[in-house]
Design a protein around this nucleic acid. Sequence first.
DNA 1: ACTGAAACTTCTGACGT
DNA 2: ACGTCAGAAGTTTCAGT
Lengths: 156, 156
Amino acid sequence: MTDDERIDQFDRKILSLLQADGRLTNNDLSERVNLSPSQCSRRRQRLEEEGFIRGYRAVLDRDRLGFSLVNVISVTLATHNRDNARNFAELLSRLPEVQEAHALTGEMDYILKVVTPDLKSLSDFVNGVLLPHDSVQHVKTAIVLETLKETSALPL
Amino acid sequence: MTDDERIDQFDRKILSLLQADGRLTNNDLSERVNLSPSQCSRRRQRLEEEGFIRGYRAVLDRDRLGFSLVNVISVTLATHNRDNARNFAELLSRLPEVQEAHALTGEMDYILKVVTPDLKSLSDFVNGVLLPHDSVQHVKTAIVLETLKETSALPL
DNA sequence: ACTGAAACTTCTGACGT
DNA sequence: ACGTCAGAAGTTTCAGT
């Protein structure tokens, strides 16, 4: 990490405010962090260029857009060699209903977070796409009854 | 659902583009959906007001900001009455390292996604905060070895 | 490094179709 | 419901401290 890739308290505050509201203007930012708008603009540009800010996203309402089901699916791979893992990763990258995929320590190989409109499309996904794939040996599906919290904000 | 809360193909396209890039200008939007800028502005405003768009967020780089560990924690509650569930929910709302919390069907009561800077702070969180709480009976911690995919985008 | 002002881009609301 | 246009707002660059 080179010296100019450090962040100070102003940067932290800017990041913190932007992850709460990605549309804050430089004017608004400047009032809250006590810097001039131009300085906020420059700092934000730096934070974007150096990769601290990966991007900006609109967060949509799942229910209102018809994705009523959230599912947590545990996956065990057929074999544990590198090729198989790559095949599985390639499969996931093509499946838009998979929002998250993490390789875990412990019994299960992978845990997926999947959104679907209803039980039929969940079943189609599990039995029609995931299970038939060569890389996959076993899956265990759990349905989310209630989401208490859901954010991508880091505790800065 | 009233009639004016429906969305058409233009709206879908706008939502889809904005969840990929929340900073798209109306000009850019208008070119990609083949509408005038003012029309995009109006539609976007409607989508925001009617709650299809819940907000805009900057997505930060976890690793660069020092949160190297992602953890998946399964929680079993001490008792399954409503008061206990409410106590647990209240606890979670005060813990910024918890990014997600879902109540599940199956053996486990809840699954949490938690980010921490290192193993010590993970241990502090599990043994110092989660386990001592009255509402909690048992937790099982798994560490994420690799994240293959992570998005909040809906498959519109 | 920061500020302030000027040049530029984007937004938005009134109006016409 | 949509597009055009002009006034308002926001962004960014640059000279100055």
